[in-house]
Amino acid sequence: MIQLYNVTKKYGGESAAVKDMTLQIGKGEFVYITGASGAGKTTLLRMLYAAERPTKGQILVDRKNISRIRSRQIPFLRRKVGVVFQDFKLLQSRTVFENVAFALEAQGKKRYEVSKKVYQALKEVGLEHRLQRKPLELSGGEQQRIAIARALVVDPLILLADEPSGNLDQEVTFEIMALFQQANARGTTVLLATHDHSLNQRFPRRVLTLDQGKLIGDQRPLQG
Protein backbone atom coordinates (compact mmCIF):
# COMPACT_ATOMS: atom_id res chain seq x y z
CA MET A 1 0.00 0.00 0.00
CA ILE A 2 2.85 2.37 0.87
CA GLN A 3 6.37 2.07 -0.51
CA LEU A 4 9.30 4.41 -0.02
CA TYR A 5 12.54 4.07 -1.97
CA ASN A 6 15.58 6.05 -0.82
CA VAL A 7 13.44 9.01 0.17
CA THR A 8 15.20 12.14 1.38
CA LYS A 9 13.55 15.41 2.35
CA LYS A 10 15.47 18.59 2.98
CA TYR A 11 14.07 21.96 3.99
CA GLY A 12 16.16 24.73 2.48
CA GLY A 13 19.81 24.37 3.41
CA GLU A 14 19.22 22.53 6.66
CA SER A 15 20.17 18.95 7.31
CA ALA A 16 17.68 16.43 5.98
CA ALA A 17 14.47 15.86 7.96
CA VAL A 18 14.20 12.43 6.33
CA LYS A 19 17.31 10.66 5.07
CA ASP A 20 17.50 7.91 2.50
CA MET A 21 14.49 6.06 3.84
CA THR A 22 13.28 2.82 2.28
CA LEU A 23 10.30 0.95 3.68
CA GLN A 24 7.16 -0.90 2.74
CA ILE A 25 3.84 -1.08 4.44
CA GLY A 26 1.29 -3.60 3.26
CA LYS A 27 -2.45 -3.24 2.86
CA GLY A 28 -4.31 -3.48 6.15
CA GLU A 29 -1.24 -3.09 8.35
CA PHE A 30 -1.20 -1.13 11.61
CA VAL A 31 2.15 0.60 12.08
CA TYR A 32 3.52 2.83 14.83
CA ILE A 33 6.11 5.40 13.84
CA THR A 34 8.14 6.36 16.89
CA GLY A 35 11.11 8.54 17.62
CA ALA A 36 12.05 11.67 19.51
CA SER A 37 10.82 15.11 18.45
CA GLY A 38 12.53 16.09 15.22
CA ALA A 39 13.15 12.49 14.21
CA GLY A 40 11.16 13.08 10.99
CA LYS A 41 7.83 11.44 11.88
CA THR A 42 5.73 14.41 10.87
CA THR A 43 7.71 14.99 7.67
CA LEU A 44 7.23 11.35 6.71
CA LEU A 45 3.47 11.61 7.21
CA ARG A 46 3.28 14.96 5.39
CA MET A 47 4.96 13.41 2.37
CA LEU A 48 2.39 10.62 2.38
CA TYR A 49 -0.50 13.05 1.94
CA ALA A 50 1.48 15.24 -0.47
CA ALA A 51 1.79 18.25 1.79
CA GLU A 52 5.51 17.92 1.12
CA ARG A 53 7.36 16.49 -1.83
CA PRO A 54 10.49 14.41 -1.35
CA THR A 55 13.76 16.03 -2.37
CA LYS A 56 15.00 12.66 -3.58
CA GLY A 57 13.59 9.17 -3.94
CA GLN A 58 10.21 7.71 -4.84
CA ILE A 59 7.02 7.28 -2.84
CA LEU A 60 4.23 4.98 -3.96
CA VAL A 61 0.80 5.12 -2.41
CA ASP A 62 -1.78 2.63 -3.61
CA ARG A 63 0.59 1.79 -6.50
CA LYS A 64 0.73 5.39 -7.66
CA ASN A 65 3.98 7.33 -7.59
CA ILE A 66 3.27 10.50 -5.68
CA SER A 67 6.81 11.89 -5.45
CA ARG A 68 6.18 14.11 -8.46
CA ILE A 69 2.42 14.32 -8.22
CA ARG A 70 0.72 17.16 -10.07
CA SER A 71 -1.05 19.74 -7.91
CA ARG A 72 -4.30 18.95 -9.65
CA GLN A 73 -4.05 15.30 -8.62
CA ILE A 74 -3.42 15.97 -4.92
CA PRO A 75 -7.09 16.27 -3.92
CA PHE A 76 -7.73 12.81 -5.36
CA LEU A 77 -4.84 11.31 -3.37
CA ARG A 78 -6.17 12.93 -0.20
CA ARG A 79 -9.56 11.35 -0.70
CA LYS A 80 -7.89 8.00 -0.15
CA VAL A 81 -5.94 9.18 2.87
CA GLY A 82 -7.58 10.29 6.13
CA VAL A 83 -5.44 12.42 8.42
CA VAL A 84 -5.78 13.01 12.18
CA PHE A 85 -3.73 15.64 14.01
CA GLN A 86 -2.69 16.34 17.57
CA ASP A 87 -4.54 19.68 17.48
CA PHE A 88 -7.64 18.12 15.83
CA LYS A 89 -7.93 20.84 13.14
CA LEU A 90 -11.67 21.24 13.45
CA LEU A 91 -13.62 24.24 12.21
CA GLN A 92 -14.69 25.98 15.40
CA SER A 93 -17.37 28.00 13.66
CA ARG A 94 -19.18 24.92 12.44
CA THR A 95 -21.18 22.25 14.19
CA VAL A 96 -19.98 18.70 14.77
CA PHE A 97 -22.23 17.52 11.94
CA GLU A 98 -20.89 20.15 9.54
CA ASN A 99 -17.30 19.35 10.42
CA VAL A 100 -17.69 15.73 9.46
CA ALA A 101 -19.96 16.46 6.50
CA PHE A 102 -17.31 18.82 5.18
CA ALA A 103 -15.06 15.95 4.10
CA LEU A 104 -17.84 14.36 2.05
CA GLU A 105 -19.09 17.64 0.60
CA ALA A 106 -15.54 18.43 -0.50
CA GLN A 107 -15.68 15.27 -2.55
CA GLY A 108 -18.93 16.31 -4.15
CA LYS A 109 -21.08 13.65 -2.49
CA LYS A 110 -24.84 14.01 -2.71
CA ARG A 111 -26.78 15.48 0.17
CA TYR A 112 -28.70 12.45 1.29
CA GLU A 113 -25.56 10.38 1.13
CA VAL A 114 -23.72 12.93 3.24
CA SER A 115 -26.33 12.98 6.01
CA LYS A 116 -26.49 9.25 6.21
CA LYS A 117 -22.76 8.68 6.26
CA VAL A 118 -22.03 11.47 8.72
CA TYR A 119 -24.58 10.06 11.11
CA GLN A 120 -23.07 6.61 10.82
CA ALA A 121 -19.52 7.89 11.30
CA LEU A 122 -20.48 9.88 14.37
CA LYS A 123 -22.34 6.89 15.74
CA GLU A 124 -19.22 4.80 15.40
CA VAL A 125 -17.21 7.25 17.49
CA GLY A 126 -20.12 7.54 19.93
CA LEU A 127 -20.96 11.20 19.30
CA GLU A 128 -24.22 10.95 17.40
CA HIS A 129 -25.95 12.86 20.21
CA ARG A 130 -23.63 15.86 19.78
CA LEU A 131 -24.56 16.65 16.15
CA GLN A 132 -25.45 20.28 16.61
CA ARG A 133 -22.76 21.22 19.13
CA LYS A 134 -19.73 23.33 18.27
CA PRO A 135 -16.32 21.68 18.80
CA LEU A 136 -15.29 24.07 21.58
CA GLU A 137 -18.25 22.98 23.68
CA LEU A 138 -16.80 19.47 23.77
CA SER A 139 -13.88 17.87 25.61
CA GLY A 140 -10.51 17.25 23.94
CA GLY A 141 -11.24 13.53 23.62
CA GLU A 142 -14.58 14.23 22.00
CA GLN A 143 -13.00 16.70 19.59
CA GLN A 144 -10.42 14.11 18.55
CA ARG A 145 -13.21 11.61 18.01
CA ILE A 146 -14.89 14.09 15.66
CA ALA A 147 -11.63 14.49 13.79
CA ILE A 148 -11.39 10.70 13.49
CA ALA A 149 -14.98 10.51 12.30
CA ARG A 150 -14.12 13.11 9.67
CA ALA A 151 -11.10 11.11 8.54
CA LEU A 152 -13.02 7.84 8.42
CA VAL A 153 -16.29 9.03 6.95
CA VAL A 154 -14.78 8.91 3.46
CA ASP A 155 -13.72 5.25 3.86
CA PRO A 156 -10.03 5.98 3.31
CA LEU A 157 -7.54 3.32 2.27
CA ILE A 158 -5.01 4.79 4.66
CA LEU A 159 -5.39 6.57 7.98
CA LEU A 160 -2.48 8.77 9.06
CA ALA A 161 -2.41 10.01 12.66
CA ASP A 162 0.19 12.46 13.89
CA GLU A 163 0.44 12.28 17.69
CA PRO A 164 -3.33 11.91 17.94
CA SER A 165 -3.22 11.40 21.70
CA GLY A 166 -0.63 14.08 22.46
CA ASN A 167 -3.16 16.30 24.18
CA LEU A 168 -5.26 13.60 25.78
CA ASP A 169 -5.11 11.63 29.03
CA GLN A 170 -4.53 7.91 29.01
CA GLU A 171 -8.09 6.73 29.39
CA VAL A 172 -9.22 8.83 26.45
CA THR A 173 -6.15 7.73 24.49
CA PHE A 174 -7.20 4.10 24.82
CA GLU A 175 -10.70 4.97 23.57
CA ILE A 176 -9.12 6.65 20.55
CA MET A 177 -6.86 3.64 19.98
CA ALA A 178 -9.92 1.41 19.95
CA LEU A 179 -11.33 3.51 17.11
CA PHE A 180 -8.13 3.15 15.11
CA GLN A 181 -8.21 -0.58 15.64
CA GLN A 182 -11.81 -0.78 14.48
CA ALA A 183 -10.88 1.08 11.32
CA ASN A 184 -7.90 -1.22 10.86
CA ALA A 185 -10.12 -4.27 11.33
CA ARG A 186 -12.28 -3.02 8.47
CA GLY A 187 -9.21 -3.01 6.21
CA THR A 188 -7.86 0.52 6.52
CA THR A 189 -4.08 0.76 6.68
CA VAL A 190 -3.17 2.77 9.80
CA LEU A 191 0.05 4.74 10.40
CA LEU A 192 0.27 6.26 13.84
CA ALA A 193 3.14 8.59 14.75
CA THR A 194 3.68 8.75 18.50
CA HIS A 195 6.39 8.91 21.13
CA ASP A 196 4.13 7.24 23.67
CA HIS A 197 5.63 3.74 24.11
CA SER A 198 2.80 2.65 26.37
CA LEU A 199 0.58 2.39 23.32
CA ASN A 200 2.72 -0.31 21.78
CA GLN A 201 2.93 -2.14 25.06
CA ARG A 202 -0.82 -2.20 25.36
CA PHE A 203 -1.60 -2.72 21.68
CA PRO A 204 1.47 -4.39 20.18
CA ARG A 205 1.92 -3.76 16.45
CA ARG A 206 4.72 -3.22 13.95
CA VAL A 207 6.97 -0.35 15.08
CA LEU A 208 9.14 1.81 12.80
CA THR A 209 11.69 3.78 14.79
CA LEU A 210 13.17 6.99 13.38
CA ASP A 211 16.16 8.92 14.59
CA GLN A 212 17.36 12.15 12.98
CA GLY A 213 15.54 11.33 9.78
CA LYS A 214 16.81 7.78 9.50
CA LEU A 215 14.91 4.55 9.88
CA ILE A 216 16.80 2.77 12.64
CA GLY A 217 14.39 0.05 13.63
CA ASP A 218 11.56 -2.05 12.19
CA GLN A 219 10.12 -4.45 14.75
CA ARG A 220 7.12 -6.69 14.40
CA PRO A 221 5.35 -8.10 17.44
CA LEU A 222 6.00 -11.77 18.19
CA GLN A 223 3.19 -13.89 16.86
CA GLY A 224 0.84 -15.55 19.29
Partner: peptide, 16 residues
Protein backbone atom coordinates in the same frame (compact mmCIF):
# COMPACT_ATOMS: atom_id res chain seq x y z
CA UNK B 1 -6.97 30.10 6.66
CA UNK B 2 -7.70 27.12 8.93
CA UNK B 3 -10.85 26.47 6.98
CA UNK B 4 -8.95 26.66 3.69
CA UNK B 5 -6.24 24.35 5.00
CA UNK B 6 -8.74 21.79 6.21
CA UNK B 7 -10.68 21.93 2.95
CA UNK B 8 -7.50 21.13 1.07
CA UNK B 9 -6.66 18.37 3.56
CA UNK B 10 -9.90 16.50 3.10
CA UNK B 11 -9.49 16.36 -0.65
CA UNK B 12 -11.38 19.39 -1.92
CA UNK B 13 -10.28 20.44 -5.39
CA UNK B 14 -9.08 23.97 -5.98
CA UNK B 15 -12.29 24.75 -7.82
CA UNK B 16 -14.43 23.43 -5.01
Amino acid sequence: RDELEIMALVGATMRF
